[in-house]
Design a protein around this nucleic acid. Sequence first.
DNA 1: CTATAAGTTAGCTATTTAGCTAAGTGTCTT
DNA 2: AAGACACTTAGCTAAATAGCTAACTTATAG
Lengths: 109, 109
Amino acid sequence: MTNQIDRFFSALSDPTRRAVVEQLIDGPAAVSALHDGHAMALPTFMKHLKVMEDSGLVTSTKKGRVRTYQMRQDALRAGADWLNAHRTMWEARMDRLSRLADHMERTRS
Amino acid sequence: MTNQIDRFFSALSDPTRRAVVEQLIDGPAAVSALHDGHAMALPTFMKHLKVMEDSGLVTSTKKGRVRTYQMRQDALRAGADWLNAHRTMWEARMDRLSRLADHMERTRS
DNA sequence: CTATAAGTTAGCTATTTAGCTAAGTGTCTT
DNA sequence: AAGACACTTAGCTAAATAGCTAACTTATAG
């Protein structure tokens, strides 16, 4: 039942996974390079990578014994769009409210 | 250990909770008004509201027997900022790469 | 050809999450 | 004062998540 945007936000709700995004923005990297510096067992870390891949954030390809992860094109688009759209609606509403307050201020008996 | 941004993304990873955000953008609403149309028991629904309040997305106040929820000022800001910043970095990198590819194209023997 | 390196798979535990029902607490309304 | 209304609390279950170790597979290096 959980759809893509659920998985997207869920993937970003963990600091380990956000760190991976930040690292991958600088370019593709192998599992062990990504794992470096994370104080957790490799299989645990690999579960995070799987979550990220399932969420559409990243893709991976294997060559020889090394698997390389990379950001996916437009990975951050859908979530950013959702947030920007809703933030815009919210700010528009705040605007209307403050204009209304202004008006009531100016026209008070 | 889970920090505010974890909770923020986690709160938005559920469709029920995103629907509540959308409803609250139109203005504050009482628990039962928010609950309307969601096919789940009220206590279950209230847990979602608690998650949202803990995440900093919304606040609530109680007057008489009615509790009213409202969007919090700048609720969507932190998450939108994170995403926009990272998307920008990513797109800048893509730009550099495509300029590089161009250059190699033009200077090939 | 053996050893090491890079992942992977399997299987376990603890915690969190999402759902439920039943019963309780105040606050209106009549 | 009684009943209805709007939550709230308590306590349960099932499934998902995050972590671990141990053992396995497949490349590459020597």
